[in-house]
Design a protein around this nucleic acid. Structure first.
Lengths: 233, 233
DNA sequence: CGCGAGATTTCTGTCGACAAGAAGTATACA
DNA sequence: TGTATACTTCTTGTCGACAGAAATCTCGCG
C-alpha cells in the first residue's frame, strides 16, 4: 500500500517496538484483528518496514498480557475471547471496579479530579456522537484514571488488563445498542465522580458495584441472545 | 567458571529464553541479584553461552512483570522494592488472599485438594528443616495452588505476581525469624485447608484475612524495626 | 584549578541471515 | 484407491554484526 514511502528509514531509535506493539494492540482490541487471526511476523515486518526483531519483542509483550497465544515453533494467533470463563471475568472486573473506586475516593489528590472529569466529558461527547470506538476508549480511560487516583499500581494493572480484555466484549456490547448505550451510564459516571469528590467511600463502592452489575447484566443478556441465535442456526 | 563446557551448543530449540528467564527470575526473587543491580546483556549472553536475542526477550518479559526497570537506550536494572507503596502491596495481597481462598472453597474440584495438601507437606518439611528458600517457595506454591483451584485466571495472575514480588520481602521476613517462622503459620494453613475442603466460604475468607493480616503485621513490625535502626545511624 | 566542548567508549536497538521444526505435498507401494 | 514415507516449503528461534544514543574521558580555555 505505502511501499513507496519505505525508502528513507529515518525513524527514531526506540520507536520500533512501541509502534508495532501499539498497532497490534489497538487492532486486536478493536476487533480489526478478530480472535483466532494468525499473525505472520514477516508480513508484519514488511508492513511496518521493520525487521522481525522488534516485532518479536512486541509479540512477546502481547503474549504476557494474554492478548495473543503462541504455540512453540508454530503459528501465533490472536487469543480467543474465553466465553467459558466469562464468570471469572465478570467477578474480577466487578471487584476491581469496586476496589479502585473505593480507594480513589479515599486517596485522590489535587489534580486527579480534573483529569477524571475531562475523560467523562470526552465520554459524554462520544456518546452524543454515537461513536462506538471513542465510547469504548474514553470509558476505559475514565475508569483507568479513577484507578490511578486510587494509587495502587497492582489494582491498576489488573484493572487495565480487564478493561482492555473487556474492550473486545464491550465492542459487542455497544453494537447491541446500535452504538447507543443507555444514557444512564453517563449519569452513573457523574454519580461516581460526585461520591469520589465527596470522599464518600461507601457510596462510591455501592455506585461502582451497581455500575459493574449493570454492565455485566447487559453483556450477559447480549450473550444469551447471541447463544440462542447460534442454537437456532 | 564453566567456560570449558561451552563447546557443544547441543541445546533444545525453544529453551533459550526460558533458561534465561527462569535463571534471572529466581536470582532476582531470591535476592541473589539485589534490587538496583545492573544487568548486562552481553555478560549474561556469554554466561549462558547464548546470543543476546533470547536474553533480550527474557528481559522484555521480566520488564512487563515489573521485576526489572529498563531505561530507554540505557542500562536495565533489577527493580527496587518500593517501600513507599508497601501499603498498596499489603492491601492488594490481603484482598487476593481472601478472594482466592473464598473462590477455592467454592470452586475446587476433585484432585485439587491433593495437590494443595502436597504443597502444605512440602512447606511443613521446609519449616522443620529451617530452609528459608524452600519455605518461601513452598509457601508461594501452596497459595498459588489454592488460587488455581479458585478457577479465576485474572485473580491467579495478580496473586502470583504479588506472591513473587513478596518473595523478596518474605526473604527479609523469614530472616527476621532466623529462618524460623512462627509455627502458627503451618497451623493456619491446615485450618485453611479444612475450611476449603468443607466448602465453608465464610470461614475460609476469615482465615485467609487473618493469615494475611498476621503476615502483614509481622512485616510491618520488621520494617519499623529496620527503619529505627536506619535513623540511629 | 575549575569548567565546558569534543572525542571515545560502551551499551542498546535493529538488521539480515542461517538453521531447526512442523505443516503440507508428492510419490511409491500395497 | 488408501496409506506410509520422503521431500519441499514455510515459519520460527537464534546468531553475529552494525549503527545510534548516552555516559565517560580528555583536552583546551578561562
Amino acid at each position: 500500500m505505502d511501499d513507496t514511502a519505505a525508502a528513507l528509514p529515518e525513524r527514531k531509535r526506540g520507536s520500533g517496538v512501541k509502534k508495532a506493539y501499539d498497532l497490534l494492540r489497538t487492532e486486536i482490541l478493536d476487533l480489526t484483528l478478530p480472535p483466532g487471526s494468525p499473525i505472520d511476523e514477516v508480513q508484519l515486518a514488511e508492513r511496518l518496514s521493520l525487521s522481525r526483531t522488534p516485532i518479536r519483542e512486541a509479540l512477546a509483550r502481547l503474549a504476557t498480557e494474554g492478548l495473543i497465544d503462541t504455540l512453540p515453533n508454530r503459528s501465533t494467533m490472536v487469543s480467543n475471547i474465553d466465553f467459558l470463563n466469562l464468570h471469572a471475568f465478570f467477578d474480577a472486573i466487578t471487584l476491581m471496579y469496586r476496589v479502585t473506586t473505593r480507594l480513589a475516593a479515599k486517596n485522590w489528590q489535587p489534580g486527579d479530579l480534573e483529569i477524571i472529569r475531562a475523560h467523562q466529558r470526552d465520554f459524554a461527547t462520544a456518546v452524543a456522537n454515537h461513536d462506538a470506538l471513542a465510547m469504548i476508549g474514553t470509558n476505559r480511560d475514565f475508569h483507568a484514571t479513577i484507578a490511578e487516583a486510587a494509587r495502587n499500581p497492582y489494582y491498576l494493572s489488573l484493572f487495565v488488563r480487564l478493561l482492555d480484555d473487556g474492550r473486545r466484549l464491550l465492542r459487542l456490547y455497544y453494537q447491541s445498542f446500535n452504538d447507543r448505550p443507555p444514557p444512564s451510564v453517563v449519569e452513573e459516571h457523574e454519580d461516581i465522580i460526585a461520591a469520589v469528590t465527596a470522599r464518600d467511600v461507601e457510596t462510591a463502592d455501592r455506585l461502582a458495584k451497581a455500575h459493574a452489575d449493570q454492565i455485566v447484566r447487559q453483556i450477559q443478556k447480549l450473550l444469551a441472545w447471541d447463544q440462542r441465535q447460534e442454537i437456532s442456526l
